[in-house]
Every structure is written in structure tokens, then in C-alpha cells.
Design a binder for these strands. Structure first.
Lengths: 338, 338
DNA sequence: GTGAAAGCGCTAACAG
DNA sequence: CTGTTAGCGCTTTCAC
């Protein structure tokens, strides 16, 4: 059982040529059903497993898709991956997953490694840091399908999948305003990334539309790691103008803000209303429940997977660089109740 | 730029043999530094990228490690993966990750696919369902390193990495007893899996040691999906003997139990004390904070990665099937306060 | 419908 | 220290 058996072994056993074996195994039309059946049978009996390397080398494709994500261990990202994996697996593709850990350097490295590994396509969600996109030209140059999801950039001919962060940011802020907030702080991630920049933009538009002036000091930019919560809460507490609403670009951070604010004696939502982003499971655990924007990660994964697969199978023209926008939804809960 | 350039091209350009090029590229000791430098230079200039398939085919190894997990999208699992990925990436291995979605069938399929993809090693955390382990013999037969983490099984010569669930279950229960609980319910996952079976065992031992009789009706077995929360809470409410403590094998479930119990009018921890498992981030978000057992996922990932890598590099004898136990820790919080 | 033979690009034993 | 020469196992023209 330990010995590797090749198509030559099968050919010999059956007294036919390796070529015929190969064709049978691949269900080639020009082979009689009888031969195919014979081959398949012996293949099964002998426990034949085809050597992917040889096939790949010969065919120049790998049946694998590379994925680069900032971090594996976030609820949102692993949900997306789960969706991608489902699709890929269903159609017989393997997934090579790597994380950039928010570092541009590592992202470059990952891109290179995955290229060398011969992935047929690449899915990426950008690192916080990334400003330069040259490491992707290797792919675009050779027409290897490249698709960005969530944290996207607008490289030519690269499909993107995300929600309308612009509109989502607007909706979130508008909701706070409707609930009576007038001095709203926005806690954002790196504005280099579309997701945060767009939300911030939506926030500003909402303020503007309601005749509320935007104050620069109401924008808190950070990497959204919860070490910053304390600092930000102090900043809110010490703010000259009483803060009555907070729009946080991330549920985890929002939830920890609530905890910290409660410790400081604030009543949520009476004193300050808070809205988060993502609809992470934590948002329903915190008390008061967190109002948030639903960001359907699994669906995003499914769509990303399907999109890249259809590119690969050539059923869609790669040139038609589509931009898929997934619908978001405002989920009203206690943290912004009147 | 789009043309693929091979070692033959380099050889020709440099007027040396392809073999020398190959050796130089691989930093073979028997090549003069001068030649290496020349080769490397031209390689860089021409944008040479080695073809992994050819190398793999020739070397009969792939530099990839397969991973099968039940679900990608759980905080614990993605944390573990994050650790594995870090190690793998550091030493130049790729990770092919697939999920069984708790199905034995899918696990079998994944194992087969990964085998066909030529992974050099396999890491697996078992599905809920899995009862038969024959799909792994393909690996053991061919001496492909196989390692189980978290949800393990005791196949011969397969290293395992987990915590001492036995002891952890004991500690959790003992803590409840110390806090005055006498009628403790245990909410468990599938007892087919070591992690749950062992914890249950620890629970029973603790009861026994304290002279408390175990009642079968105090064991609630399920798949721990939160749809069951309501049902279980009703069962607790309607229990003949007043339940005063709950040991839940999973923080997410525990947290939702707390929410539901509070709705039912129970005071936590006054009426019922609760302890969870894993130390998921949610455990600190719920009010009252959840007492739990810390289960260091990242560390587990790191160790799993290191262990498999050292097997692969032959520095450790695969036969010495080690069992690595990671230390757990009781984290006391409000949900079990006296 | 099937076979012969030439690669795919790299590695490694064997010579020198 | 470097070159020669076989493969690795599969696919794929081009014949028959």
C-alpha cells in the first residue's frame, strides 16, 4: 500500500498505453466507455492516486487559490474565509491561506510566495499599512485573476467585493442624529483603507446634511486595538463639548468602549449613544445590546469564491472588472435607544 | 515580462549548465560564491521565478501542510490557525486549510483531497461526528506526519496537542463547589470527542470527591449550537432539584445561557453560578463577566506548527509519538462570585 | 479509438 | 567545483 502507483503501472497491468490511461482518468471523449471502465476499475483496485505535481507541471495550473487576509482570528474574517472555503471546496479547488498581520512587508512576501506556489488566482483583503500595490503587478501582468474583498483598492481590472461603506457610514451617523445626538465622535481605523475612509466620509456627509458642523477633534483614528479604548474614553470624558454619540467602525472596539464608559459612570444610551459596525456576535452579548451595521461576511466569502471561480472557468470576462456591493443593514438595538 | 523564464534560460545566458544554476539558486555548498553571485544576479534581473511544480515533482515534496478544522469561524479555532500559520510561514511552508463543518463525510473528503494535493504533513482537529479514523491511514501508511490538536484521537504514532481537559473539567467543577454549588448541571458537547468526554469526566470526579452524587439528568449533551440555549434554560427552570451551578463546555454557549437566564429572572451569580470554557473574548463582555477556563489557542497553534515542522525536518523521531499538554488556567470572574 | 514520443522545469546521482 | 544525464508522472500533439 505504501508504494506509489503511476499511470504506467496501470497501463502495464491493462496492456494499454499510459496515454490511454491518462485520457480515461480524465474522462476524455475520444475513449471508449469500455476502456474507461476497465481503467477506472483497476485504478480503484490498486488505490491509484494521481500525482498533482506532475499534472500541474504539465498543465501549468494548480487548482489552488491563494488568499491573503490581514488577520485570521477575527470573527468577521474567519466567517468570510468560511464562505470562500465552501465554494472552493465544492468545485475542487484548494485554498492556501496566509495572513499579512497588517504589515505591508508581510503582504508583499505572501503575495510572492503564493505566486511561486503557482496559485491560479488570488483573493486579498489589504493590510492596514499597505500603500503601494506593486506586489500585485506580478499577477495582473500574467493575467492571473486577482480579486479584492472588504479592504479593497482600485487596481485596473481587479474585481472588488465589499459593502457600500459610504452609505453604511452615512446610515449609522444618520441614525445617531435621528436619535438626538448632536456631538458625535467617530472612532475609525486607518483612513488609508477604503472601508474606514468611506465610512468616515459617510459620517461627514450625514453631519453635513443635518447642518451639523464636523469638528476635526471628533475623529479618533487608530488601529482599533482595544488597548486604545481607555485613552479614547478619557478623551471623550475630557472633551470640551459634551459627546452624546459615538460611531465606532468595529463592534469589538465599540463593545469595549461601552464597558469602559459604564465604568466611568456614563449611562448608555441615556448619556451617550453608541453604534458599532459588523454585527459581530459580541454586539448581542454586551449590555446594553449594541446597535450596529450588519456586514454579511459569509455571503461576502461565498460571492468572492463564486466570482473568482467563474473567472477561472472563463465563463465571465476578467476584463469586465466588476465591483460587487453587498447590501448592509442597520440593526437597531438598545445602545442607541431614545 | 509575461514570459516564463527557466533555469535553462539562465544557464544559456551565463554559459553554464542548468544544474549549476539549480544548485546556485538552492545555495548548494559545492558551488563557488562567485558563480552563485552571478546566477543570483541574472536571476534577479530577468525576474526568474522557479516553478514549484517541477521542483515538487522532482523532490517529491510540496512544502505545504494541510489543516482540517471543524469550523474556521470560531474565535478559538481561528486563533489556533493564526498560530499555525505564523510558524509555517516563518519557515517557508504553505498552509492549505479546509473545514469539515463537523461532518465525518466532509472530513474524509478533505483528507483525501489534501493527500492528493501532496501535503507534506497534516494537522487535524476532529469533527463532532467522526467515529471512524480510516481516512487517516493513507497518511500513517505512507509515514506522512499526522498530528491532532484540540479534538484529538489516539491513533498510533500520532502526536497530539491539547490541554488536560480532564483536569480542566475537574477544576471548573471544583470551583463551583467551592463557591457553594451543590446541584451542578454540566452542558457538554458531543461526548464522542475527547475534549468533552474528558471534561465531563473531570466534572464527575469533582462531584465524587466532594461527596456529591451525579445525576444523569444533570448532563445536557448537544452540539452546543445556541439554538439549544432556550431549551436548556427551560430544562433548568423546570428541574426538580433547584440548579445552583452550571458548567458549560464553551463560552459562547455559556454567555447565551446567562442572557437567557437573566431574562427568566434569575440573578447571576446569586441564584445560579456559571462557569464557561475557552476564555473567548465574549466572556469579558457579558455582564456579569464569565468565569472560565483559559485555553490558549494561539500557543496551541504555535506548538502544533513547531511540532509538525520539527517532524518534517527530521529533527525529532516521528515514532516518539508525543502528547503535548498545554496548561489551562481557571479565570475567576463575577459569574461565580459568592 | 489508441499509441508513440516529446515535453513541462527542476533535481540529483554520477562523472570528471 | 561543475557538467551530463536521467528521471519525477502526467498531458498532449501527431500519427496510425
Amino acid at each position: 500500500m505504501a508504494k506509489k502507483i503511476t499511470i504506467y503501472d496501470l497501463a502495464q497491468k491493462l496492456n494499454i498505453s499510459p496515454a490511454t490511461v491518462s485520457r480515461s482518468l480524465n474522462d476524455h471523449p475520444a475513449i471508449s466507455q469500455k476502456t474507461k471502465d476497465k481503467v477506472l476499475l483497476v485504478a480503484k483496485e490498486t488505490g491509484y492516486r494521481m500525482n498533482k505535481f506532475a499534472a500541474n507541471l504539465s498543465k501549468q495550473k494548480s487548482n489552488t487559490i491563494g488568499v491573503i487576509v490581514p488577520k485570521l482570528n477575527s470573527n468577521f474574517m474567519s466567517t468570510v474565509l468560511s464562505g470562500i472555503e465552501k465554494i472552493a471546496n465544492d468545485v475542487g479547488y484548494n485554498l492556501i491561506i496566509s495572513q499579512s498581520l497588517e504589515s505591508e512587508e508581510k503582504e508583499k512576501l505572501n503575495a510572492k510566495t503564493l505566486f511561486d506556489s503557482g496559485v491560479d488566482a488570488l483573493l486579498v483583503s489589504l493590510a492596514y499599512e499597505t500603500e503601494n500595490f506593486d506586489h500585485f503587478t506580478t499577477y495582473t501582468d500574467r493575467k492571473i485573476p486577482l480579486l479584492f474583498f472588504d479592504r479593497v483598492c482600485d487596481l485596473p481590472n481587479c474585481p472588488t467585493i465589499s459593502i457600500d461603506n459610504h452609505a453604511a457610514g452615512f446610515d449609522a451617523t444618520q441614525h445617531l442624529i435621528q436619535q438626538g445626538c448632536r456631538n458625535i465622535v467617530h472612532i475609525s481605523g486607518s483612513l488609508k483603507r477604503n472601508v474606514y475612509a468611506d465610512r468616515f466620509d459617510g459620517y461627514q456627509r450625514a453631519l453635513h446634511k443635518n447642518g451639523i458642523e464636523f469638528h476635526k477633534e471628533n475623529l479618533y483614528e487608530s488601529d482599533l486595538s482595544i488597548e486604545n479604548v481607555q485613552k479614547f474614553v478619557e478623551r471623550i470624558r475630557d472633551s470640551k463639548h459634551k459627546v452624546d454619540g459615538i460611531f465606532v467602525s468595529n463592534d469589538t472596539f465599540a463593545v469595549h468602549c461601552i464597558k469602559e464608559l459604564k465604568k466611568e459612570g456614563y449611562k448608555i444610551p441615556e448619556d451617550i449613544k453608541i453604534i458599532g459596525f459588523n454585527n459581530d456576535p459580541v454586539s448581542e452579548v454586551i449590555s446594553p445590546n449594541l446597535t450596529t451595521i450588519e456586514y454579511p461576511g459569509y455571503k461576502m466569502g461565498i460571492l468572492a469564491g463564486e466570482s473568482i471561480i467563474s473567472h477561472l472557468s472563463g465563463s465571465i470576462n476578467i476584463q469586465s472588472a466588476d465591483q460587487i456591493l453587498i447590501k448592509h443593514k442597520l440593526i437597531k438595538r438598545e445602545s442607541t435607544r431614545l
